[in-house]
């Protein structure tokens, strides 16, 4: 049943990812204290997305899952983008 279970991820990998996450957290705090105007929010979102992909791919084992899982995630993100984007066609042009 190789498809059913994954190999255990070594502790080291998780710890490295954790260090990266902490670093990114401090980065996002640091960046937020510099005035970049509207860019601030985008920088914050960018770093948050980076962090979440680390969590999703490594902590949540998405790396080891089959294509189906990745497709599902993509479908969800596309729909989410549609929901947000189309709502803004109203709000931005009102």
């Amino acid at each position: 049943m190789s498809e059913q279970t994954h190999k255990a991820v070594p502790y080291r990998t998780f710890i490295l990812i954790w260090v990266a996450l902490l670093t990114l957290t401090l980065t996002t705090v640091a960046v937020s204290r510099i005035d970049l105007g509207a860019l601030n929010i985008w920088a914050a979102l960018l770093i948050a997305s980076l962090k979440s992909s680390l969590v999703i791919f490594v902590f949540m084992h998405l790396r080891q899952e089959s294509k189906l899982f990745k497709l599902g995630l993509t479908a969800m993100l596309v729909i989410l983008a549609v929901f947000i984007g189309l709502t803004f066609t109203d709000v931005l042009y009102r």
């Binding site: 957290t25 937020s32 204290r33 979102l45 948050a48 962090k51």
Partner: peptide, 12 residues
């Protein structure tokens, strides 16, 4: 939380 944190605590 990764999204909540910058969006609520860190807006300059």
């Amino acid at each position: 939380w990764i999204f909540v944190f910058p969006l609520y605590y860190l807006i300059l």
